[in-house]
Design a protein around this nucleic acid. Sequence first.
DNA 1: TGGTATTTCTAAAACTATAAATTAAGTGTC
DNA 2: GACACTTAATTTATAGTTTTAGAAATACCA
Lengths: 340, 340
Amino acid sequence: MEKLNIDKVAKLAHVSRSVVSRVLNDHPNVSDVARERVMKVVNKYNYRPNSVARSLATNSTHEIGVLVTQSEDEALGSAFWMQLHRGIFEESKKRGYFVSLSYVPPRNKEELNNFILNDRRLDGYILLTQEVTNMVGRELFDKNVPIVLVGHVPRKKQVSSVDVDNVKGGRLAAEHLLGLGHEKIGVMLASLDMKESKDRLKGLREAHLEAGIELSDDRVEIVDYQFRAGYQTMKKWIESEIDITAVFCASDTIAMGALLAAREHGKKVPEDYAVIGFDDLSFAEFTYPPLTTIHQPILKKGKMAAKLLIDEIEDKDSGRHKINLDPQLVIRESCGARKN
Amino acid sequence: MEKLNIDKVAKLAHVSRSVVSRVLNDHPNVSDVARERVMKVVNKYNYRPNSVARSLATNSTHEIGVLVTQSEDEALGSAFWMQLHRGIFEESKKRGYFVSLSYVPPRNKEELNNFILNDRRLDGYILLTQEVTNMVGRELFDKNVPIVLVGHVPRKKQVSSVDVDNVKGGRLAAEHLLGLGHEKIGVMLASLDMKESKDRLKGLREAHLEAGIELSDDRVEIVDYQFRAGYQTMKKWIESEIDITAVFCASDTIAMGALLAAREHGKKVPEDYAVIGFDDLSFAEFTYPPLTTIHQPILKKGKMAAKLLIDEIEDKDSGRHKINLDPQLVIRESCGARKN
DNA sequence: TGGTATTTCTAAAACTATAAATTAAGTGTC
DNA sequence: GACACTTAATTTATAGTTTTAGAAATACCA
């Protein structure tokens, strides 16, 4: 009655062990009589093959790892991360894969590589890393571990990756603001150690250059992706009477903080300051005023990453891909432009 | 050079296979000389035992499952969920356990139980379930699968569980509002299919009863845990000129929506409406005005759940526990009371 | 120094539960 | 009867842990 295994099932069904295996794995050359006898026992005792043993024999666990090179509190603080996770999850589930999450300290290439190399528990990895340092060692390629990078498209290396075109995102935001006549734009960016920050700044710069307007370094502030950071920076700016008419925020969460600080100081958005966000999170249409922002397809990003990884694991497509998703400007009211 | 296994290591170190196993698992009766020889080879080739084979032999994977009986988009929509997850994660990591996440459709007891029963991949489960229906079947107890429930403390069953005292939470909120002289309180609650909603309502009712004030059913609205829901409900109430002076919201996210709707309609908080939230999420002190709310120790909830589960897995403590954490009133400005 | 006790080692086997390749047996056809 | 085909049984492989029995080395004691 207790622990059933394939041998006991075979005995109960009066067939050999391999017949049971064949039936359970839909392999050919099993007579209807034998199949029926096996299934009867399987159903009666609700037998399911031990997945660990199966993993050992097939050398695959049907489980992928999501490695986040951020501390838990950073990663889990953001609605952004949740959307991404959801995308990964939905796709994995559809394909019959489990997902195991791990947080690896940032800037610790050694630990990351060892982790991946030493653990045969997982079929592949999605690395959520924002660092410019190339976290993936060469030894991983030799080992042929399936990997997909998210949030950092490396130049030459033979890894698949998914990201949003952050240069374009920065450019879209700046073009919108500049197009509305703003010439002095305050910028709240996350750490420039992250590639996405660098790229957004690059886009911002390009648009300014084309418009013949200078983007002053004095107006670029490095903040983290927190409501609090947006609030405090905006507060500081207003109190120091900084000379700007518009604010670019590297996330909607930051923008929300900025909106609150403005309101608390009696400033009106968009009349006194135009504010543009980034991400287009679910609450963006409910801020006051509704937030103009750069939409990025986060859910799709997650789904894509999982799809590429699982394709590679199942060898459906061993080619490496570099996906660069398109961001889009979503015009609402916080910049004063008419909706189109 | 390729795939090392324990036999090859033994050969390289000129010892028997059992010595290698002994060394790697810190078992006694190994001489220093032998240990050193083994470690030299292990380090040189960076050998790590195959974790799947090890799991098969030891019948433990060092991985726990977190089963969420909500669809991905519901669960992942909330900052609440992230905090909880973070707690589970931090504790698991500290104890050397991996965590695998799964979303099981709600109200599908069959699928949930089969999932747990049939998968020997995981050492134990944390069930995040809010449903009143008892999702855990009796067969699980016979099988002796370690389980901890979060968010639903069952009455008799022999399962460990962790929750916050929601009756007390509801009571604290109502007492605060009633104490400030509010006699007509609007209530935004999540589905009464969830035990936590029932309990909060019970607490609300008890406080009203003791104050000799009626809590009218007309003023109780069922909403989901979304910013949008709070916004729309508050808007509806204001436009229909409902006769209330205070609003209880079942989460800070809902409260934030209510605050925005009030502001958009030119109503002042707390002068026109006192608003109290629930959860004390990180942004609660940054709303406008700062939100008075019922703090619940979400992080601790997650940590506790993981701790209980892993204790049970490792048989450090086979007793079942029912943890009921204490909520606390956090007074800020949205109800008009003086901070203490 | 001899004898017993203890520790450490080896080699082999059992054990975990499966998949898959190989071999054997049975049946059918020409 | 030879050959092909289907089906079943046997064996090997996956990579560890753990146990056993026996051998070797060392420790302790008189």
